[in-house]
C-alpha cells in the first residue's frame, strides 16, 4: 500500500522516516520519530492524533518553518524534488505558491494592523509580478470565492471587524491566492463552532472540487476525518502508528491505539448509563519515551513482544506499527461494537 515509486506515479508530497528535533532549555527533544506518509495530487489525507503527537511539526517541517527545530533524519520530497533542509530562499518559492497552509487559530493568524485586502494583495504579489490594482482585483475575486458577502467593501475591513468564521475564510482565501497544488490545513475548524465548522469544511471541499488542490488535513476530530478524508494517517507520540484509506481505518481499525481512540469518542447514541471506554494514562513525555512500542504503557493488548521497537509494517491495505494484526487483518475484532 506504499505509493508506487517511479517518476510517473511519484506522489506530490512524500515524507520518509522523518525525524525532527527541537533545542529547548533542557536539551534537545525529538518531536518526530519516524513519520512516513505521502499525498497524491488532488487527494485528501487526514492526519489525526492527540495533542502533542507531532501533527503541526510535520506541517512546519514540510514548509521549512521549524524555527528552533531541525530535521535530524529522513527525507521530504516535493514533486519529485528533495526539499529536506532546503535553504530559506529556496523554500520561499514553494511556500504559498506550491504549498499553502491555514492555521488553527483564525483570531491570531491575520496581521491585525493591515486590512484583509492588503494582506491578500501581499500574498498574491509575493509570487506574481502584477500591479497593485490587478492584485486588488484578485483579492476581491478570492473573497468572493470563499463566500464573503460584499467582497468589494470587505477588502477594506480589518481582521478585528470579522467573525471567527469569516477570518478563517480570509485565511483560506490567502492560502489559495497563488493556486497552490497542496493545501495544508492545520486544525482549520478547531476554534470554530460546529455550525461554522460545517460551513468552512463545505467551502474547502467545494474549492477542492474546483481547483483540484491536494489537502493535508490535520485534525483530532474523527468526525471531520470521516467527512473529508480519502486516506488517514494516525499519529501517536511523534510516530505514524497506522495509515490507510478512511473507510479501512474508521471501520476496521487495526492498531490498538486507533481502535481505542475511536471507542473513546462520545457519539449521539452512546449509552448514557455505561462508562466511556477511555484510554488509561497519558501520552508519555517527549524526553521520557519507552524504547519499545510507545503505546505499550496504555495498551490493553500489550505483551512481552511490545518491549521491542515496532516498525511500521505494510499489510494488505494499510500500514500498522504493531506486531499483532495479521495479513488480511481479521484477527482483531473491534473492542466495543459501536451501534450504527
Amino acid at each position: 500500500m506504499r505509493a508506487p515509486t517511479g517518476s510517473a506515479n511519484e506522489p506530490l508530497l512524500r515524507i520518509e522516516d522523518l525525524h525532527v528535533e527541537f533545542r529547548t532549555g533542557g536539551g534537545t527533544v525529538e518531536a518526530l520519530n519516524a513519520v512516513d506518509l505521502w499525498i497524491d495530487a488532488g487527494e485528501t489525507v487526514a492526519i489525526v492524533g492527540e495533542s502533542g503527537s507531532g501533527k503541526s511539526v510535520t506541517a512546519l517541517a514540510v514548509l521549512g518553518l521549524l524555527g528552533n527545530g531541525r530535521v535530524s533524519g529522513g527525507r521530504i520530497t516535493w514533486n519529485g524534488k528533495d526539499i529536506t533542509g532546503a535553504s530559506n530562499s529556496e523554500m520561499r518559492s514553494v511556500r504559498g505558491k506550491e504549498i499553502s497552509v491555514i492555521f488553527q487559530d483564525p483570531m491570531t493568524s491575520l496581521d491585525p494592523l493591515f486590512t484583509i485586502g492588503h494582506q491578500l494583495v501581499e500574498a498574491y504579489r509575493i509570487h506574481h509580478d502584477v500591479t497593485k490594482r490587478q492584485a486588488r482585483q484578485r483579492a476581491v475575486e478570492l473573497l468572493d470565492l470563499v463566500g464573503i458577502p460584499e467582497p468589494e467593501a470587505k477588502v477594506k475591513a480589518y481582521p478585528h471587524q470579522l467573525s471567527g468564521g469569516q477570518r478563517q475564510r480570509v485565511m483560506i482565501a490567502g492560502a489559495l491566492a497563488c493556486d497552490p497544488r497542496l493545501l495544508i490545513a492545520d486544525e482549520p475548524t478547531t476554534a470554530l463552532d460546529v455550525t461554522v465548522e460545517a460551513q468552512v469544511l463545505a467551502l474547502i471541499r467545494d474549492l477542492q472540487d474546483r481547483t483540484g488542490v491536494g489537502l493535508m488535513l490535520i485534525t483530532h476530530d474523527m468526525g471531520v476525518v470521516a467527512e473529508m478524508a480519502d486516506r488517514v494517517v494516525v499519529f501517536y507520540a511523534g510516530q505514524v502508528v497506522e495509515a490507510g484509506t478512511a473507510d479501512e481505518i474508521l471501520d476496521r481499525p487495526q492498531h490498538p491505539y486507533t481502535r481505542a481512540l475511536l471507542d473513546a469518542i462520545p457519539r449521539r447514541d452512546t449509552p448514557r448509563d455505561q462508562e466511556m471506554p477511555a484510554i488509561p494514562g497519558a501520552v508519555p513525555a517527549l524526553n521520557d519515551m519507552p524504547s519499545g512500542c510507545r503505546f505499550a504503557t496504555r495498551c490493553s493488548e500489550a505483551g512481552p513482544e511490545c518491549g521491542e521497537p515496532q516498525p511500521l509494517r505494510d499489510l494488505d491495505r494499510r500500514q500498522v506499527r504493531c506486531w499483532r494484526p495479521d495479513e488480511g487483518h481479521g484477527v482483531l475484532e473491534p473492542m466495543v461494537e459501536v451501534a450504527r
Binding site: 514548509l63 518553518l65 530559506n88 523554500m91 520561499r92 518559492s93 514553494v94 511556500r95 504559498g96 505558491k97 499553502s100 497552509v101 492555521f103 487559530d105 491570531t108 493568524s109 491575520l110 496581521d111 491585525p112 494592523l113 493591515f114 501581499e122 500574498a123 509575493i126 509570487h127 485565511m171 490567502g174 492560502a175 491566492a177
Partner: peptide
Amino acid sequence: GSNFIRTIRSRGASERVVVLKHAGRS
C-alpha cells in the same frame, strides 16, 4: 513568534517584509 508572522512566512514573504513591515509595525 506570533501566529500572524508565521502566516506571512508561510506565504513565502521575504524576511525583510516579515521583520520590517509586519513585525516592525506591530
